[in-house]
Design a protein around this nucleic acid. Structure first.
Lengths: 334, 334
DNA sequence: ATGAAAGCGCTAACAA
DNA sequence: TTGTTAGCGCTTTCAT
């Protein structure tokens, strides 16, 4: 049964090959009798339409390209799982491309992506040049950046409200009575990292506080080193806002085990993302929740809208995030 | 520049369409002059060969289907990232299919997979029926099960040496002087779960110890409940071997935070996988390392070997695992 | 509602 | 080495 074609089914059913095609094409017309005969023959032969051939004609592959950089931050596998599920429900599937965040690499990967005639592209934790997004637009392929923002109007993006998020954290920390505050920021090469920092610093400034800021690069080791540096000064902070949970865990490890400090008694720690691990007892991390489900839903709907109607303009969606208070911070003072 | 075909390139370069094809087909011959002209024209037009059309003729899509169930256990995203990278280097890409582990769902997903004319399939953390593997074999599509074993000779599998691994843990725990030992096992519906348990119990029996065993279902909540149950008896264990790290973290959380016990002083804990989190200070978990890189390499080489020569018999590969001793256990007694 | 015929963009014989 | 020709398996006019 190495390869069953529609022609073979047609012959067995005693109809034309196009009749078979119609039976398997959603919006086509065939008499009940024909459908019956064809379905039976197809069943017996184990026939299923060849997506490649179909894609070639219709120009729709029902494949979405996903470009992703790192999977070590729990947030991304989670988002990816949800994304895959949501798309699968709509009859789409994800073709994965891994890229590091170097400019040339992303470019190379995107080109390959276009070879596959994908119907759309989602980039996660990956920055794009405007040149690149323009090219996708020119090729008529909608792009949605997940968890990264971007200027230019050819590309949609879905993020949480990062500036507002940073602000919320600042206001919360201030309300707890903290005066000496530090920020180990998300990578400054990413919009999320910059936005969170900006919101945070602005709101802190409004409260008369200037935080010490170090770029944590979304990297555990860098965040650990930053923690040591911060705590080694004459006036160590009593609260640290960390650019994402992934780094915040490293910060807590360094604080508690390496430096022998207590969280939150000696230092309060706030993260960003609310990955599952943040809720586990070992960390119990106060953090800004990025609502994965809503972000994924927005991504899918934006993508499908633009696939179905290419004229739709690019959207920039920001999802509101709540602060989830847990044990790594003390509550606000009464 | 909405869609550039080889024909357009051919016209611009002043050669035949097949000449263009040859220039872009790895094993084909063309004069330096032709290559030059074609490359230039292609560059100017932004031409890239259409993979779908190519796939249809050659019968090779250079797409590998990946069926995966859960991504919450850190081990799988990690493996997936490595797998994607390794395959990408060989010019292959991963088309993702998410399945829960119900029989019907896997079946449905596999059928869809076949529609895409994938060159091969990798299943991760997913069980397959022999009927299903037979069908893939009949379709001429090589399947490799990652981190799951399977009887029958149509399907290859790559696992670590789980029986031996379970045995090693038992011998280690015995050497530490533990007498009251429990096992929160991996899901008994999975070969890995069963194998680890078997090796563990056999070796313990040889040491005159009979462990209490509860199926943890690879689930945090189930593992937590099991922990409470175990510790609530008259003779609570002083050591617990947990079927994977993901559950072991839940066990440690429950032990330390909920029950107020110390690890390893009151109870020693051993996991399986050695995911990155196991090495973090918050858990510092003794565990059996499943060498992801070697497992992925074996998976890729097995897959590619069978793709390039379908006559190659299915392989069952077991990778040796070392025990990584950390702070969740006391060392062996001198 | 159905069949015949024309491709989708490409590779692979086959000649030349 | 090159161009010509015939499809890969399917959808989609166009007649009927």
């Amino acid at each position: 049964m190495e390869k069953v074609t529609s022609l073979q089914v047609a012959q067995r059913a005693g109809v034309s090959q196009s009749a078979v095609s119609r039976v398997f094409t959603p919006g086509a017309s065939a008499s009940a009798k024909t459908v019956e005969k064809v379905r039976k023959a197809a069943e017996e032969l184990g026939y299923r339409p060849n997506m490649m051939a179909r894609a070639m004609i219709t120009g729709k592959s029902r494949i979405i390209g996903l470009v992703v950089a790192y999977l070590d931050n729990q947030f991304y596998p989670l988002a990816m799982e949800r994304l895959s599920n949501a798309l699968q429900e709509q009859g789409y599937h994800i073709l994965v491309f891994t890229a590091d965040n170097s400019r040339g690499n992303v470019e190379e990967v995107m080109k390959e992506l276009l070879d596959y005639q994908v119907d759309g592209i989602v980039t996660a934790s990956v920055g794009m040049t405007n040149d690149l997004t323009d090219r996708c637009a020119a090729a008529g392929i909608p792009v949605v950046m997940f968890n990264r923002g971007q200027d230019g109007d050819h590309v949609s993006s879905v993020t949480s409200a990062n500036v507002a998020g940073g602000r919320k954290v600042a206001e919360f920390l201030l309300s707890c009575g903290h005066k000496s505050i530090a920020h180990i920021s998300g990578w400054q090469g990413s919009s999320t990292g910059r936005d969170r920092q900006q919101g945070f610093c602005d709101a802190l400034a409004a409260g008369g506080v200037t935080p010490q800021v170090i770029d944590g690069m979304y990297d555990r080791d860098t965040a650990s080193a930053a923690t040591r540096q911060l705590m080694g000064t004459d006036t160590p902070p009593d609260a640290i806002f960390v650019g994402n949970d992934h780094m915040a865990f490293a910060v807590m490890d360094t604080l508690r085990v390496e430096l022998g400090l207590r969280v939150p008694d000696d230092v309060a720690v706030v993260g960003y993302d609310d990955v599952p691990l943040a809720a586990w007892a070992a960390y119990d991390l106060t953090t800004m929740r990025q609502p994965v489900n809503r972000m994924v839903d927005a991504t899918v709907s934006t993508l499908l809208t633009r696939i179905n109607d290419p004229a739709t303009p690019a959207r920039r969606i920001e999802i509101e995030s709540p602060l989830i208070q847990r044990g790594s911070t003390k509550g606000p003072i009464a």
